[in-house]
Amino acid sequence: MQPDGLWSIGELAERAGVTVKTVRFYSDRGLLPEAGRSGGGHRRYGPEALDRIRIIRSLRALDVPVPEVERVMDQGEALEQVLAGRLRDVEGELTALRWREASLRLLAESEAEERVERLLLLGAVALPPGTDAVVRFWRRVLPVRLPGRLVSRVLDAVVPPLPPAPAPEQVLAFARLHAFVRDPRLDRVPALRPGPPLPGQTYRPTVLYEGLEEAYGLAGAEARGGRPPEGGGALDCFVAAYAAALGTRDGAAFRRRLVELLAADDGPVMTRYWKLAAPLLPADEPALGQLHYRLVLALRADSASTP
């Protein structure tokens, strides 16, 4: 320390364990205020500069960008906000690494004749992957005039969550699902976005989807309890949703017509979607596609037993 109690730039660098160039860089950025100047105009720093440079080094070691460091040190931004942002970044980086690891394991464990096809599938998926393509697929499937709040709830139910640490088979399942929903041949499927379920009748899609949401909730409870869909529960709620949306009443004739309608709607596109999505869905929770199929089967059985 100099007689005036201050350090030269070299002394500060030595005490902090950094280079003079580093001290000068942070000083030029305003992160290390000078305590004074020598008679020759050289920078002088007080002991508080050592504490500041140690804090800066800690933040930089955590890969906090210099502009973020500046906001913490000089603009009073809460350190918690900066650290929370960096944690989100690191979590994303770790997820990308885990997906990359699972992709490598998938390829390493594949037969030689499978690898080219799987490389092509994986090459179309970003790391970490996102579900934007799946969301776009469902927005094409859903009726145009559904309220945004209802669309959000439907998307939460039908878009599979991506595991942060996937198994190799989940990587392959998502790559296949991603390729499927982006397949341009879907543009040529005329029934992909459904119109009125029964031509010539009033159709209120919001009423239908709100009713189906309740029916699927009841069906999920029945499935978890090991009970089949029966009258008075999910099945009646399921039929009532269609009847209310079409402005008619439930009855034996309507149920027979509804069986025909649902047989036409349950085409290969949706069947393929739910098959591909299955490995990504929680194993202990029935998927919406499974619940729908259970209710359709129950409706067929009910209609067949009713004169």
Rank of each mutant, 00 (worst) to 15 (best):
K275G: 07
D187Q: 15
L246V: 03
R185G: 08
S110W: 06
R140D: 11
A191D: 14
G40I: 08
L295Q: 09
G10D: 08
P228C: 11
L281Q: 11
A215F: 01
P194Y: 00
Q75V: 00
E80T: 07
A133L: 09
G289M: 09
L31M: 10
E111Y: 08
G39W: 06
L122H: 10
D236I: 05
A124S: 15
G130R: 11
E80G: 08
A219C: 13
T306D: 13
L127Q: 11
D51K: 14
L155C: 00
T271Y: 09
R204G: 06
A223D: 11
G5D: 12
E169C: 03
A78H: 06
A278K: 09
G251N: 08
A240Q: 12
R224M: 13
H42L: 07
L62K: 14
F137E: 10
Y242E: 15
L155E: 10
E214M: 05
G195I: 13
E48F: 04
R224C: 06
E117T: 04
A35S: 14
A167Q: 12
R188Q: 12
V66D: 01
R100T: 06
A215P: 08
L218C: 01
R43F: 05
A221F: 03
P268A: 13
L50D: 05
P205M: 12
L297N: 09
R105E: 09
R139S: 02
R54F: 04
L276G: 03
E114M: 12
P166L: 11
A221Q: 14
E68M: 11
I55F: 00
R24T: 04
R188H: 13
R37N: 02
R224K: 08
D156N: 11
S38W: 04
M270H: 13
Y216F: 07
D187R: 15
E91W: 06
G251R: 15
R37Y: 02
C237D: 03
R44A: 08
G17N: 05
V154T: 10
M73F: 05
I9K: 10
Y209L: 06
L261N: 06
L31E: 02
R182T: 10
L246E: 14
P268G: 15
F238C: 12
L122W: 07
F180T: 09
